[in-house]
Design a protein around this nucleic acid. Structure first.
Lengths: 223, 223, 223, 223
DNA sequence: AATGAATGAGCCTTCATTCAT
DNA sequence: TATGAATGAAGGCTCATTCAT
């Protein structure tokens, strides 16, 4: 505590007192509010895109004043980037955990696609993915961040497992080893399809990904 | 015959003659200029997105005055939509022509992916695709247009051919019949990958799509 | 009671108290500022007309930023209309009050013309009248508003009183009953004359209206 | 004929020949076209006001190209001023002719009001008057021009005749001598009323001016 | 910390004016 | 003379950011 500031005026003394006691709670509240803002931001950015979203709307949706946003984020761009970062990080964990389990390749891919359905496609996180795709070219750091934090952590893991499977004869070809992206391409397409055409031409994502599995592992189709 | 009129007629004949060539030239120039604007618009929209693109930039890139844009397009939104429309339409033809040929399913898919590589991925049309993905949610008509003009014309064609192949035993499963989107998902991913990560993690799209083919048709891999 | 809530309540009570006075002041300031803008707008619109007035000029004259105008008025047109409306409404009251008094017709007309001189001709309200005349054709609602709020409230009042005067023999003819506009026509002309020719050919409005009275009531001229 | 120019090119030779022969006709045509432009301009200016009128609209209405306007008028402002000037000048003649006749004051005023009804109120010239009223403050030369060419030529004439009438006992008071504007005030009001309220509250201008006459000359009412 | 009124830079759009044909 | 495409300055309006309370 810096005595100079603490003693300066009655107002600041009171401020300090207010803040002093329930430090933990306060901090929690602060985190909660920050989170409310991020949630509101995600909803708005997902609906309007970065440029077309007004901070006014985010503030209104988060039920805070416009100025308050600046107490939590430096500016619009920071808000956007921190939104993507904060919502993306938990993802990797889930997938890596899934991948770490000792399963057949087919079961592993099936598990991953299920995690995708539950944790991404079925939640607002799919909007994060969409935002990265849409705004990535204008926020190269974001694209890099996504690549570093998600892609670069998941693809090698997959690749390693697939290479192993090729060696052991579990897989007959190395196409997937060279391009494990092929495994998740349909997942991305599911997100994009539902955002673009979902209104008038819905896609059953679960069935879509199951069909993808059948193509990947034809011998075991319809067990 | 009154000389006044006679002269008038002569004049207008002359005018017509005079104008004849310039008119053609003018008209050509007009189309050319319109096209130059559309090209400039594509470059800017692709780089900045719809909202962040300034008409000033488009005008400068097209080497016309800002006001000139409004001689060719009603407003920014019209410019954007007409851009997407005009650059998209020729595509369908190419793909449908490819699809009409009498080929094995594998050869057909290979042809389509090659057309994609040459006509989309290798050209600025890939930016159109990206724009539709990015801005589609804010321009539902565009998404619908894309679906109606491209998706709805290509997928059924594929589906029909695939169903036939299933019946004839050429294909063993009907997953692709139910979701022909699986055939093109990697093509989309190639576009997105190169836009997002191309700078620091290039993707060999041709090899990528060849690997996709191998996965789709494992028996005929590496002939 | 949870201290957190207690404090919260204390805080909000404090907030309310804190704000109490400033709120009132703020609100006053808000009205004042709105009025300053309207005053500035009247000056500019009167000098340049609606279309030629720039919001920049109004803002500068009101000593606010351009954007501030939009905190108080939706757009230029709204500003203009609310200006006319707000400055017009108090007028009717004055005239109707005058008209309600129990006076001879001559005294009544004299009173009205005096009210006109003091409350309109001598103030910036004459510019409102001019604006209605100038811009009315392009803002039909304004013309209707003026007719409904002013004309339709004053003329019938006059007409009734005049009809009474005809019946009682106080007036010898019913021309004014049919067209009470004749009573105020010179008042309008005084406004227009001074705006158009005042610089080089001033009109003594008081004497002008006195002369008008003499024409209306010849028998009592020069008592 | 300046040989240098004449011999320069085939085109200019032809141009000269074209122009050469029917000089008179050409000139007439030129005047006609100029007039068509002025008519179109009056219609548009009357409907939209000076600032809100686009030269495009005038050109379209006059069935000429936009650039052509600049062959006849230096710029928008010149066009407007010349419009007012050209359409105003013939007026004075009519009124002065009327005023020159040897009539009783009442008959003279009646004649003038009739001329007004026929030559102004019943024609597009009333729009000229309205334009002067509306735009005069922004075009001081126009106001001056109007004052000099119309007001200053008509009022003194009236004043002289009225003074004479006062002397001869034909008129009992000198109010009108001091303010002959009172004679024409209702005429102005008729124009403004019809422009502002005519749609929903029509004014019978003829009856209105007749009533005005009755007020001015009560003894001779309803002959 | 929180508020929201105020700011002013920035961008879309219009339109008077020019000029090549 | 006549055209109308092209120009670019100007102005209405928005919205990220600031700041007094």
């Amino acid at each position: 505590m810096r005595p100079g500031r603490a003693r300066k005026t009655a107002r600041s003394r009171m401020r300090l007192r207010d803040r002093g006691t329930p430090a933990a709670r306060k901090k929690e509240t602060r985190t909660e509010r920050r989170d409310a803002i991020l949630d509101a931001a995600l909803a708005e950015f997902a609906a309007q895109g970065f440029a077309a979203t007004r901070l006014d709307d985010i503030a209104r949706r988060a039920a805070v004043a416009k100025g308050t946003l600046y107490l939590y984020f430096r500016d619009k761009e920071s808000l956007f980037k921190e939104l993507v970062r904060s919502r993306l990080s938990p993802l990797v964990g889930a997938i890596r955990t899934a991948a770490a389990r000792d399963l057949s390749v087919r079961a592993l891919v099936e598990l991953i696609l299920n995690v995708f359905l539950t944790e991404i496609y079925g939640t607002s996180r799919k909007d994060i993915i969409r935002l990265i795709i849409s705004e990535g070219p204008r926020f190269p750091e974001l694209a890099e961040f996504y690549h570093r934090e998600v892609i670069a952590r998941v693809l090698p893991l997959l690749r390693r497992r697939l290479r192993q499977a090729v060696k052991s004869g579990e897989l007959r070809q190395d196409a997937l080893v060279r391009f494990p992206q092929l495994l998740v391409a349909p997942a991305l397409v599911a997100i994009l399809w539902s955002a673009l055409f979902g209104r008038f031409s819905p896609l059953d994502a679960r069935a879509f990904l199951r069909a993808h599995l059948e193509v990947l592992f034809p011998e075991s189709a319809r067990p």
